[in-house]
Every structure is written in structure tokens, then in C-alpha cells.
């Protein structure tokens, strides 16, 4: 770097009105030209934006933070889930089990997810699921008992029935329960056997 020439600004090869920056690198000099005004305005606007952002975000907290939004969304999901579960009782499940549309969609879920273990005709299957057509209910014969086994999985974790709610959602859990109930009727169900003792069962 050579030392700047004191009289550099007065040279004739510089256009009128232009000034040179102080530095010279390997003989390369630089004009001190003004930036375009529109360019400067992009800077001013970001400064204004940052001030507004600070006030809105930190001073007044006018916009919910990501954490608050996630919490709110989770609460809404929980609320919906509880609303769904709240509506589910024996009578509604029985009513659903007599509705052809519910049975149809429940059948689809059953065919895709359940038939591998419980058999195409509910008669139990090679995958190790219990028969669902024999009027014997291991974890309770009430429709809500069946519903909670589908939703939360078997109370006995060594048996392989997983909790399906996360995968299917509450609506389809209810539909597939209704599909199973469509093979039964309330009178017979009342007299059905609960068999919590069948520990040797598959």
C-alpha cells in the first residue's frame, strides 16, 4: 500500500464532483460515490422495521411466541380429543354400529389394520389376535371397554395389541369399534363373558 498522494483529489483524470477514497491498493483507487437513494432506503426501512419489531415483539408481546402457539395448538388438539372421547359411551357406540356408513369406514380400517391379526371374519388370525366374534371379551364386554383397548392397546403389553389412537385418530378408533360391535347386539353382549383370567390365551 502506497501512501495517499495529498493532491490526488486535484488530478485531471477525476471527473468533476467525484472524490477518491483515501486508500490505494496496488495502484487501484476507489471513488467515493453516493449509494443509490433507493438502496439507502432499504437500510432505513429495516431500521424502522427493527424498532417496530422490538416494540411489538418484546415490549408489548403482541404476537404469541412459537412456544405459546405450539402450546395453544396442543391444547386445542387435546380439547378436541377429549370432546371426541366425551361423546363416546356405550349407547353412541351401539348407535354407530347400526349405521351403514360408519360400518363401511370401520370395515376399511379393520381390513387394513386389524385383519392381519384378528382374521378377515373376526375369527382370530395367524398374526395372533384374539377372535372377536365369540362373545368372549378378555378386557370387558362393554363397548367403551372395547373402544379403550383399541385406543390404548392391550392392558397386557406382552400380547402385542398396540395403542392405535396415534395412528388412526379418535374418529377411526370409534368407527372400527362400531364395526366390531356390528357383529353383536346389545342383548347378547349383556350376557357375554368377561375373561380377564385367560392369561394363557394367545
Amino acid at each position: 500500500m502506497s501512501s495517499p498522494d495529498k493532491n490526488r483529489q486535484d488530478r485531471d483524470d477525476i471527473p468533476p464532483g467525484a472524490t477518491l477514497r483515501e486508500h490505494v491498493y496496488d495502484g487501484i483507487e476507489e471513488y467515493d460515490q453516493r449509494l443509490p437513494n433507493w438502496w439507502l432506503w432499504t437500510l432505513y426501512i429495516t431500521i424502522i422495521f427493527s424498532a417496530l419489531y422490538w416494540i411489538v415483539w418484546y415490549t408489548f408481546r403482541a404476537v404469541p411466541s412459537d412456544e405459546e402457539r405450539v402450546t395453544a395448538a396442543m391444547q386445542e388438539i387435546e380439547a378436541r380429543r377429549f370432546a371426541m372421547v366425551g361423546e363416546i359411551d356405550d349407547d353412541t357406540l351401539w348407535a354407530m354400529s347400526r349405521n351403514p356408513n360408519v360400518i363401511a369406514s370401520g370395515h376399511t380400517v379393520y381390513r387394513d389394520q386389524c385383519a392381519f391379526c384378528h382374521g378377515d371374519d373376526l375369527g382370530g388370525g395367524m398374526g395372533g389376535g384374539l377372535p372377536l366374534d365369540d362373545g368372549v371379551w378378555k378386557w370387558g364386554h362393554a363397548p367403551v371397554d372395547i373402544y379403550s383397548v383399541v385406543r390404548d392397546g392391550s392392558p397386557d403389553p406382552t400380547k402385542g395389541m398396540q395403542a392405535w389412537e396415534r395412528e388412526l385418530g379418535p374418529r377411526r378408533v370409534a368407527e372400527v369399534t362400531a364395526y366390531i360391535l356390528s357383529y353383536h347386539d346389545p342383548e347378547n353382549m349383556e350376557t357375554a363373558q368377561d375373561s380377564p383370567g385367560r392369561a394363557s390365551e394367545r
Binding site: 471527473p15 464532483g17 467525484a18 471513488y31 460515490q33 453516493r34 449509494l35 443509490p36 437513494n37 439507502l40
Partner: peptide, 9 residues
Amino acid sequence: SVTTINQDG
């Protein structure tokens, strides 16, 4: 200098 930018920016 760039023609489309005046001396005053």
C-alpha cells in the same frame, strides 16, 4: 459512474 444514479444518489 452509473448513468442511472445521479451524483446525489
